[in-house]
């Protein structure tokens, strides 16, 4: 029963690996296949392999895949261009041929009655596996340890990058900063902080220079590249707006009806503020 639920899911997910463009999606689909496989192991009387499949495959190997994917760039997609003409079609034809042969061959074999693992698993699956692993397969087990150490060393050697230039010390950085100032006139101090306004205070509003223009260096380059920087003069205009309203209050008789005041509203895009808001601001 479990098999007939999981098998279609696994085949669909595996086929998805062939068709999705992004590597991350392929990794997630592979995770589906592997977890389903773990459940099939549980059905097949292999509780130890069920745990190992989830811990080692889904937990370690797939996470390693995802880590490397993040290092390489998540957005890397496959190129659609074929380097060898007709390679894709050939591969599909070959795959279909191979698959049909394999499936037909397997389905024609009569496997006989299933012996089942009840007898072998009598004292528990894990003790039974341990008994075999540390007696008949003990040499293979020792060889495995050598393999794992070699793999760990190999990964370290491959991932290690020799530093070709000496690391820049703080003194070097300071000297470079002063050199930039002497040669290009680049400001040696820290960058200005973004603007703080009466109605907006966030990293996306540039500070204003004394002449009223925006200080470009006060907002992050990332925000500038995304085009989400707010216009500082527009914000400054809001300030002027508030100031005008306050001036209007003071000029008028406090007993007059607020509704009769000249219509004032914020800049387009900014929430329209009413005279009540302004009075609140004044009170504060």
């Amino acid at each position: 029963m479990t098999f007939w639920i999981l098998a279609p899911i696994m085949v669909v997910a595996a086929l998805g690996i062939l068709f999705v463009r992004k590597a991350v999606h392929a990794a997630l689909l592979l995770a589906v296949v592997m977890i389903s496989l773990a459940f099939l192991y549980a059905v097949l009387d292999a509780p130890f392999l069920f745990a190992v499949q989830i811990i080692v495959y889904t937990g370690a190997i797939l996470m390693l895949f995802l880590f490397v994917m993040m290092l390489i760039g998540v957005d890397a997609t496959d190129s659609v261009v074929e380097t060898i003409r007709g390679q894709r079609a050939m591969a599909v034809v070959l795959g279909l041929l191979f698959g049909t042969t394999l499936v037909l061959g397997v389905s024609q074999v009569t496997l006989g009655t299933v012996v089942g693992l009840d007898e072998a698993n009598a004292g528990g699956n894990v003790p039974a596996i341990a008994n075999i692993l540390f007696s008949r397969y003990v040499f293979a087990f020792e060889a495995t340890s050598a393999l794992l150490i070699t793999a760990a060393l190999g990964a370290m050697v491959l991932a290690h990058r020799e530093r070709l230039t000496p690391k820049a010390t703080q003194a070097d950085l300071a000297a470079q900063r002063i050199r930039d100032f002497a040669e290009h006139g680049k400001h040696p101090g820290p960058l200005p902080s973004p603007g703080v306004y009466a109605r907006h205070n966030a990293v996306d509003t540039p500070a204003l220079l004394p002449d009223g223009t925006a200080a470009e260096s006060s907002v992050s380059r990332v925000l500038a590249a995304r085009g989400t920087v707010r216009s500082a003069p527009a914000m400054a205009d809001d300030i002027d707006d508030v100031r005008r309203q306050i001036a209007g209050f003071e000029a008028q008789d406090p007993t007059t009806d607020p509704a009769a005041m000249p219509e004032t509203s914020g800049k387009a895009g900014a929430p329209a503020h009413t005279t009540e808001d302004v009075r609140k601001d004044v009170d504060q």
Binding site: M10, V11, A14, L15, I17, L18, A23, V33, A76, T77, D78, S79, Q87, R88, M90, A91, V92, L94, G95, F98, G99, L102, V103, V106
Partner: peptide, 16 residues
């Protein structure tokens, strides 16, 4: 067998 075949085709067709 089906999963093995799908993996095979994947190795042959995918570029990443």
């Amino acid at each position: 067998a089906i999963l093995f075949t799908i993996g095979c085709v994947g190795v042959l067709t995918r570029r990443n």
